[in-house]
Design a protein around this nucleic acid. Structure first.
Length: 269
DNA sequence: ATGACAACCTGTGGGC
DNA sequence: TGCCCACAGGTTGTCA
């Protein structure tokens, strides 16, 4: 479920509930995630106190006085705060039990998510990540410079975490529509002025989605259990065969990098 | 370096 | 009604 707005929503949702709380216990029911959950996690995390909650790309960085718990939600993961004695459901893989009788519970049917334990923010998975899309350093000229000579479709280009992080399939489709750029166009053949517009629409679509608590697809819920409300205003994602909201042309669907790609054949060139 | 593609895993929905 | 296949929000690793 999670694209960057969902991860940010989760980050903001759980932060006030875990900050300054001590970890009473850690229950790992299923350690087989994208990478095995560290066997020593329970021993190390027990007694730690959460000191900060941050996000880098789609990684949640739950900092404690003993180290950093790095969590990725993968395709289907979610984190919820709930009473520690709430019966665990199928796919409730990990509980971080807090000292107030509640717990941070990780649920992930597909198990593409991950839990890592870090001593510092230096980690191979965080090494070669591109800039945050909402940072000032991410702009049209950056995209233009990085794209020269690249033949891959511009959609896959902006979904490459080494170029810019946090642009997932839904928002890549939306941002390209808003910028009037055809998703299959070679990245190296998009002009500077159009990249300036694209950088803008990426910031806008992600920013708006964060404001509205993420996109609700199937059962996404934020850290406090409230659903997001962005789905209803998607412009192209999931709307193949339906009329373009701008020009009424029938939206088309193609596959790029194995991902569903929806666009307006008349608005996007 | 680049780009194409398989892999990880379960659940769901559409077509027959 | 039920079965089977394709596909789903992400990312890494391999190979040509």
């Amino acid at each position: 479920m999670p694209e960057l707005p969902e991860v940010e929503t989760t980050c903001r949702g759980i932060a006030p509930h875990i900050l300054d709380r001590n970890v009473r216990d850690v229950i790992v029911r299923e350690p087989r995630l994208r990478w095995p959950v560290p066997r020593r996690l329970r021993k190390i995390l027990k007694g730690a106190r959460f000191t900060a909650v941050n996000r880098r790309a789609k990684y949640l960085l739950l900092e404690t006085d003993k180290g950093i718990l790095m969590v990725h939600l993968g395709m289907s993961g979610s984190l919820r705060i709930m009473p520690a004695d709430t019966p665990a459901l199928f796919h409730d893989h990990i509980d971080v039990v807090l000292d107030d009788g509640r717990c941070l519970r990780y649920h992930d049917p597909r198990r593409f998510g991950s839990f890592h334990w870090l001593q510092t923010l230096e980690h191979p998975l965080l090494d070669h990540l591109g800039p945050e899309p909402l940072a000032a350093s991410f702009d049209g000229s950056y995209l233009y410079e990085r794209s020269r000579g690249r033949r891959i479709p511009v959609k896959q280009f902006i979904m490459d975490g080494k170029i810019v992080v946090g642009v997932g399939n839904i928002y890549a489709n939306e941002a390209l529509f808003m910028a009037g750029i055809h998703p299959a166009r070679a990245a190296g053949r998009v002009a500077l002025s159009r990249y300036e517009l694209l950088a803008q629409t990426i910031k806008t679509v992600l920013g708006d989605a964060i404001e509205q608590g993420g996109t609700t697809l199937r059962d996404f819920v934020g850290g406090d259990g409230s659903p997001g409300y962005f789905a209803q205003q998607l412009r192209v994602y999931g709307r193949q065969g339906q009329p373009c909201r701008a020009c009424k042309s029938v939206l088309k669907e193609i596959r790029k990098g194995g991902r569903s790609t929806v666009y307006c054949p008349d608005c996007q060139r």
